[in-house]
């Protein structure tokens, strides 16, 4: 399930926006109210808030406890046998095998996850929406070509290809040519734009059939005008909601790449790298926080976004069934 698509949410391309489907849906304002009152939304927003807070407060916490995210404190944090402590001594969640503060690193990990997730998903949104608009509206040969591209892109095994792509970034001395964060962003975006393209293409094809488009053509409106003023406003909400749906999947993508050792590399704190380190050293048996701190952080981040995006889809997405 590490591949990037959120297949539970590949949208159904039916059900145009025909206003409220049941007596309960009500107006936009009512839907907004219902969205913000739903306990799932509140819980999700609270979790996201917590993660954001952690990301912002990371440097502050580091300054207070006096441990930088990549600084090593073997004297304070490793026992005589070289095993890391699991707490105390100013190390809230203990230390890792190199004597680094697990708590501080976990907070910094939030920055990495959010940054890579948000940037890559946004790139995918922009590229995918553009491709989908063109493929769906122009149709014919353009559509076939673009669809064939999407098919081919889907046939690549994400992780295996990513493993090879990452070696591109290896300089002559085995160092990185550009910041690995950007490589990860590129790979994740490369493997997720297709879902936006499919979504938007399907919506465009459906909207194109509706008579208000015929009316616009009949009144002499040009292609660009129709795409920008008639179609785009109708697909954008769904695409943006899908952004929120895809975001947690992309955060998982980054973590998985890092876990396999081809994403963010130690000592930069990334949750995936931290878990890989816990696995490789096997030290989590003595210092469970090595595993649990990044695992729980990943969990609450993804859960938060999942909760909110599900609610968004349920309340606002014309392509969703509202269940």
């Amino acid at each position: 399930m590490t591949v990037l698509a959120r297949r539970d949410s590949i949208p159904k391309l039916t059900g145009p926006d025909r206003g409220p489907k049941d007596p309960a849906s009500g107006t936009a304002a009512a839907r907004r109210r219902a969205f913000f009152r739903d306990p799932a939304t509140i819980a999700g927003l609270a979790l996201i808030g917590l993660v954001l807070l952690g990301a912002i407060a990371a440097p502050l916490v580091a300054a207070i406890v006096g441990h930088g995210p990549i600084e090593q404190f073997p004297d304070e944090s490793l026992s005589d046998t070289g095993l890391p402590i699991s707490g105390g001594n100013g190390f809230l969640l203990g230390a890792d095998d190199s004597g680094r503060d697990v708590f501080v690193r976990t907070l910094y990990g939030a920055q990495v996850s959010l940054f890579i997730g948000i940037v890559s998903t946004t790139i995918a949104l922009v590229v995918g929406t553009a491709v989908g608009l063109i493929a769906g509206f122009v149709g014919g040969r353009t559509d076939n070509t673009l669809s064939a591209f999407t098919d081919i892109a889907l046939a690549f095994p994400f992780l295996i290809t990513a493993l090879s792509v990452v070696t591109l970034n290896r300089g002559p001395q085995g160092d990185d040519v550009i910041d690995p964060a950007w490589v990860v962003i590129g790979i994740v975006a490369l493997f997720s734009w297709t879902y936006f393209a499919r979504l938007v293409r399907g919506l465009v094809i459906e909207i194109k059939q509706r008579s208000f488009i015929h009316a616009a053509i009949g009144s002499g409106a040009g292609r660009t005008r129709i795409i920008l003023t008639e179609i785009l406003p109708n697909v954008l909400p769904a695409a943006i909601i899908y952004w929120a749906v895809q975001l947690p999947a992309n955060i998982i993508g980054e973590a998985s790449l890092s876990f396999l050792g081809v994403g963010i590399k130690a000592p930069t704190p990334s949750w995936g790298t931290m878990i890989a380190n816990a696995q490789q050293t096997g030290l989590y048996q003595y210092q469970p926080w090595l595993l649990l701190a990044p695992a729980i952080s990943l969990f609450i981040t993804i859960l938060g976004f999942n909760l909110v995006s599900t609610q968004l889809r349920r309340r606002f997405d014309p392509t969703s069934t509202g269940k």
Binding site: P16, D17, R18, G19, R210, S211, F212, H214, A215, G218, S219, G220, E230, P233, N234
Partner: peptide
């Protein structure tokens, strides 16, 4: 284009929501 215009069956689909 200006001298011929259209009205459609389904009033739901004929207006941009």
């Amino acid at each position: 284009r200006r001298s011929v215009q259209l009205v459609f069956q389904d009033p739901y689909a004929s207006l941009n929501p």
